[in-house]
Design a protein around this nucleic acid. Structure first.
Lengths: 108, 108
DNA sequence: TGAACAGTTGAGGAATTGTTCAAACGATTG
DNA sequence: CAATCGTTTGAACAATTCCTCAACTGTTCA
């Protein structure tokens, strides 16, 4: 049995470069924490204020805010100040698709 | 501006259940580490023995083996013993798609 | 102005993670 | 059988992660 007994048909494949690898890992890391997945799922339902998210998930406002900061850093959500409150929404079309794809996989 | 000013058109959405969330996070966690992404990328090119992976990535055999164990646990790769060596391959069609999707996103 | 509210931030600590090192394992070879 | 090879494993350690708590900012409203 030779090396090419492999489900990837084409041989012209190559490793992504170091930078891509790290960015990729950084992206997926965002989806690799239950709290962040919950927050993103919340925002998939509708845009919410920090307090709403916290209440929906039964978490501290502080904990939610910390994670929102991380998600903001990854450009996955954005927050817009509206008076005292900050309304958060998904900042990236890919978020929904990636989550959906993962869910399909998990429930296969 | 009411709450439904939202890019998700349909309102009939709901949070995934706790178990799904955790499985989902667990899945994405696998892709959330550069070393594991590298290993998976290696196996996308072709099936490899542990030593080959280690050499390709310039890593310790031990480090690679540890990560392969994690990936095996997640059912993302599988190893088949062939004499002294163990040949690893991707164990899941989704792996390639998820990585590709992430790469597209990163390079957009 | 000042009290109340919504949210952010930083320090601190417990838990988890990824690596290295050394020891062990099973299969092959002399 | 003993030596060697490819791999796995466990302990130990440093680094990172996520939460809590308390302090702080900025906005509203009486």
């Amino acid at each position: 049995m030779d090396e090419r007994t492999n489900n990837q048909s084409d041989a012209s494949k190559t490793l992504p470069c170091e930078d891509e690898i790290y960015e990729l890992a950084e992206l997926f890391k965002m989806f690799g924490d239950p709290t962040r997945v919950k927050i993103l799922s919340c925002l998939q339902i509708r845009n919410m204020y920090v307090g709403e998210i916290a209440e929906t998930l039964g978490m501290t406002i502080s904990a939610v805010s910390h994670q929102l900061r991380v998600l903001r850093g990854a450009k996955l959500v954005k927050g817009i100040k509206e008076g005292k409150e900050v309304r958060y929404s998904l900042d990236d079309d890919h978020v929904t698709k990636i989550l959906e794809y993962g869910l399909t996989h998990v429930n296969e």
